[in-house]
Each structure stands twice: as structure tokens, then as C-alpha cells.
Design a protein around this nucleic acid. Structure first.
Lengths: 195, 195
DNA sequence: TAAATATGTTAATCTAGTTTAACATATTTT
DNA sequence: AAAATATGTTAAACTAGATTAACATATTTA
């Protein structure tokens, strides 16, 4: 399938493992590009996530709506990152999270079935995902530690250093939600940092 | 190598993938049992984690000492779980965390080099770790959400439901550290729950 | 360009959880 | 079994961050 945007995806995988041409072709045959408008949902809480997704362009947020109706953002995904709800995808059970596009967004998607077939045919792809998941897990653990050992201000500073591109593209109240603080308090923090 | 405790490890892997006898033998040849006393460190902050470890018996805690000298526990590992510092192990860079035994503990260990060799020879092992890491990542994300959307009391209740065996074996102040609250406040919460 | 909607700010009041410190109870060591 | 160490409790004073509410500024839409 597909125009050459899917090559971004192949290149990304090739940073971790060495695909040969046959393998690249096998993957490209299954991968589909899908375009979403700003505001559209890739996955909704309660739905089963049928596709894994790689961001070609745009930006998504993954968030959880708690029992009080409050939103908590657990991750942002921009170019060259994953934007699927892994928990639901791997278990094929209803998702706990929403994945919403906060810009017009293009994803490369693989269906659950196709991905399983590819895993069977291309063991390197298991390796690729193993490596990606190691990174993701380490980052997630680090975030837990930060939220326990740093003040809100320190966490905000760390966030701006770690993800400067994300911070520029995202409304401030979403940054607050990601950091687990109120938007008013983030506003106060930013004001303090200016002075 | 080894007495039959290592079979626990093989059985655990076989819950996720289907090893044949040759593969089982290959793994058992590399796997070493190591015993630690209560209080001993498997990995120390700043050291490079040379082995991945699977818990045969006992219990470990993985914790981070912040700039104020305060300890923050990021995970406990009991029987049939992993007890290595994945971030340091996979990157072979100095660890951000300590892994300490809080009971006398027996681990099955694989050296980084041996594990890489096994990955090369047994692609199923990549799959196994991919599956394990998916679970770990999902659990880690869930913990972030909980810490943002639940009160300390609710988080404690969730913890006791999710890990009743762990709670029984671990001093209360470590549970508090894991939950990111002070030991005094946990004491107060437990008192409230009694009444 | 006016209206509507989305995003950001400020300040007062409130609260969940921290800190400190003194004491209580287990458990381990001598 | 006494002493020492590790763990747990209670209560008062304190603080980081939440909540509320009113207003300000961008951005989008009609």
C-alpha cells in the first residue's frame, strides 16, 4: 500500500532493528494511513482498541476521565511516537482511556490481527516492540518518581526541558492536567518563573 | 547448572510462550541462582545493573533516594516477578534506583551478555519479554492515573485489594513510601478505616 | 466585526496531606 | 531479660496545592 509517508514508520523501526526489504514490504502491505481532524477520537474509553498507531504528523493526548468527571492526561504522542492504547490493544479488552487528536493528525495503523501475523513472520518486530516498551516503561517509572519527589514547580521545569516541542504545541491547561495539578496553580507557577 | 528451583522460572516463561526442551536447556545453562540476605542490595543507585533477576522466593523493593535524602519506593517484587532495574539493565548505564531485599531472597539471574545471546538464539524470549513489559507498562500507567484521581485513602484501599500478599509482608512505612504519602498519614488512614 | 467559545490570570478561601515531636509497641541483639 | 533498634501512633501546627469565582485575552465562527 501507501504513499511514502509510511517510510517514516519503517525508518523508525530500523533505528532499533535491521529489517530486510522483504520484511519492509510485508509491513508496508499491512500498514494503513489514517487521517484524523483535530478533536477526533482514535480510541474512546470503553471501546476496544483495534489498531496500534504510529504518529506521522500531528499530536494526540491519552486521557482518563475519573468518577468525578475529571480528565487526567497520561501521555501526549507526537511525530515518531506511539499513539495507541496499549492496555486495550494487547488485551483486546475495553479501554480505560481516550486517545484524542489535539491537532489534525496522520497515523500509520496496524490492526491487532495483522500485527500478530507480522509478529509471527518477523521475529525482529517482537524485538522492536520489546525495545520500545522498555523505554516506555522506564519513562513511566521515572514519572512516578518525579511526581513523588519533586514539587509542582520542579516537575513543570523538568517537563519543559524534557519535552520542549510538546509544551509549545499544547494548551497550558493540558500541561497542568498531565502534571496532575490545577490550571490555576500552573498559571501561578509560570508567573513566578517569569520574575 | 542448578537444582530444580530454576524450573519455576521456566514454568513462568511457558505461561507466555511455548519453549521446547532444547530452548529450556539453553536457558537453564545460563541461569544462575543467587541468594541474598534480608537487607542486601541487588543493585545500588549509581551501579550498572549487570543481571536481570526473577524472584524464586523472598521480596525486594526498588527505590529512589532523592536530593533531600528521602526514599521513594517504585515497586516491590515477590515470587514470580521481576526484580531487576530494567532502565539500567537495558541501557547498561548507572542505575537511578536501588534494589534491596526486604526478606531473605533467592533470585534466578541472567547476565546482560547471556540474555542477549539467548534473545539471538530464542526469538520466543523476545516475545516473552515483550509481553511482560506490556503488562508492566500498563500497570505503571495505571498507577500514575490512580495517584492523580484518587485520594490517599482510596489509593491505599486499591493497593490492599490489588496486592494483599505484598501488604501483609511489608512494613507499613514502606507501603506509605510506595503510595507517596507520609507514614503518619497512612497510620491515620488505617485508623479511620478500622472504625 | 460582533458574538461566541476556548484559553489564561488573579486573588481569597479552604483542605488534604506534611512536618515535628513525643510516645508506644514489636522485634532483634547482647 | 535488658538494652537497642525498628516499627507504629497520636496530635498540633503548618503548607502546597485545590477550589471558587470573577475577570482578561485569544481564537474561531457567524
Amino acid at each position: 500500500m501507501i504513499d511514502n509517508k509510511a517510510l517514516l514508520f519503517i525508518n523508525f523501526i530500523n533505528k532499533y532493528v535491521d529489517l530486510n526489504e522483504i520484511e519492509e514490504k510485508q509491513i508496508l502491505e499491512k500498514a494503513k494511513i489514517r487521517k484524523y481532524l483535530k478533536g477526533q477520537y482514535v480510541v474512546q474509553q470503553g471501546d476496544i482498541c483495534k489498531h496500534s498507531g504510529f504518529v506521522i504528523s500531528g499530536c494526540t493526548r491519552t486521557f482518563y476521565v475519573d468518577d468525578n468527571g475529571e480528565e487526567h492526561i497520561v501521555m501526549f504522542s507526537i511525530e515518531n511516537w506511539w499513539a495507541s492504547e496499549i492496555g486495550s490493544f494487547v488485551s483486546q479488552k475495553p479501554s480505560d482511556y481516550n486517545v484524542q487528536c489535539i491537532e489534525n493528525t496522520e497515523l500509520i495503523q496496524l490492526s491487532f490481527e495483522d500485527q500478530e501475523l507480522l509478529f509471527r513472520d518477523i521475529p525482529k518486530l517482537e524485538r522492536f516492540f520489546r525495545l520500545i516498551l522498555e523505554q516506555a516503561f522506564v519513562a513511566s517509572q521515572k514519572r512516578i518518581v518525579s511526581s513523588f519527589s519533586l514539587s509542582a514547580k520542579e516537575q513543570y521545569i523538568q517537563f519543559t526541558k524534557q519535552y520542549p516541542e510538546i509544551e509549545k504545541r499544547i494548551p497550558q491547561y493540558m500541561v497542568a492536567s498531565y502534571l496532575g495539578i490545577s490550571k490555576e496553580f500552573l498559571s501561578k507557577i509560570k508567573n513566578e518563573l517569569k520574575m
